[in-house]
Computed example of a mutant assay.
Amino acid sequence: MVIFSVQARPTDAASWTDLARRVEAAGFDALLAADHPGHGASPFVSLAAAAAVTSTLGLGSYVSNAGVREPILLATDVATLDVVSGGRARLGLGAGHTPAEWRAVGRERPDVAGRVRRCVAVAEAVQALLAGEEVTVDIPELAAYAARLTELRPVQARVPLTMGTANSTLLRWAGAHADVVGLTGFGRTLPDGHMHEARWRADQIEAQLAHVTAGAAGRDAPPALEALVQQVTVTDDAEAAAAPTAERLGLTVAELLATPFVLIGTADEIVTAVAHHQRRWGITRFVVREDAVAPLTPVLSRLTIAE
């Protein structure tokens, strides 16, 4: 079965709770909140508000920056969300890429290897904390001593973990340990600290999936694969709609339309593309932005039919 979720952020209470209700009523799987301290709303406060007006909708961060989030605080937030939502919390983690977020907490952004080591350590610590274990970690990238959730337990036996990444080491780790691998298609962070080069060509996607497969060797069931969709446009002229993005990213229009990171075309073409991504890549989950809710709602039941 194919699953669609929505990533959004609140600007006011009324529109946020209305969005949560609409997303749930339309049949989306989850409402996900970005996590950029200082640049947007707190994901867990936002998701707790959404939990109060929904009953079945999954709720998660997408994704929390493991570079600036401490395991005990993150585990407390996730467990609390799981309690107040009745067991609907999700945890999304990533290594982080925005230098300003490190500087805001008094750190300088490490190199890629350092960010990856910290991300893995945070993921393992948070999972252990949510499982009720006491955690001590003392490595250059992370320190935590006798951390434990003493009076708080999540409702779920295991809060689902999504690792959002395009890094080879994290893809292998996610293949071995995560419930969902969030394929971002991100390459090198650009000088503005926010934007990225795109790794959207077929050979690049195949290389990413090879790391996931290698990591998943020996698992009874591999993790689900999820694509973060950057553009959804319902149109009768897919090539014209795709051309500006393709030019900006240095791709041909055909290359762009073939990636799982955009859904552009008529409703029928988008349904066909989703089925193609499921067959070719094994991608069964898609995360879209708030502006995609209205155009996708009329065809969501067609998009989520299993191949």
Rank of each mutant, 00 (worst) to 15 (best):
F28A: 02
E24L: 02
L170C: 08
A292V: 00
D138W: 02
D236N: 15
A275H: 10
A216S: 14
A174Q: 08
S168Q: 14
A146I: 08
G86M: 06
G67Y: 00
I270R: 00
E307N: 11
D268A: 15
P99A: 12
A174N: 07
L170H: 06
A8I: 04
I3M: 09
L57T: 13
G187M: 09
T245P: 00
E226K: 07
E290P: 03
A221M: 07
A51T: 02
E133K: 14
L152W: 04
E141T: 15
A243H: 06
L74G: 06
I305S: 11
A48M: 08
E108I: 12
T297Y: 01
Q231H: 14
L152S: 10
G94Y: 00
V63D: 02
A207H: 12
L209H: 08
H39S: 14
E134P: 10
D35P: 04
A292C: 04
A8L: 06
L73G: 15
T266N: 05
G106V: 06
R107W: 05
V2E: 02
A198H: 12
A178C: 10
V155I: 14
A50V: 03
P37N: 04
A8M: 05
A273Q: 12
A143L: 07
P10A: 13
A20F: 02
I139G: 04
I305Q: 13
A48F: 00
A241K: 09
V120E: 10
P298D: 13
L161T: 13
A13M: 08
S64N: 08
L225N: 02
P160N: 11
R248T: 15
H211G: 06
E255Q: 15
A214S: 11
I264K: 09
A147F: 01
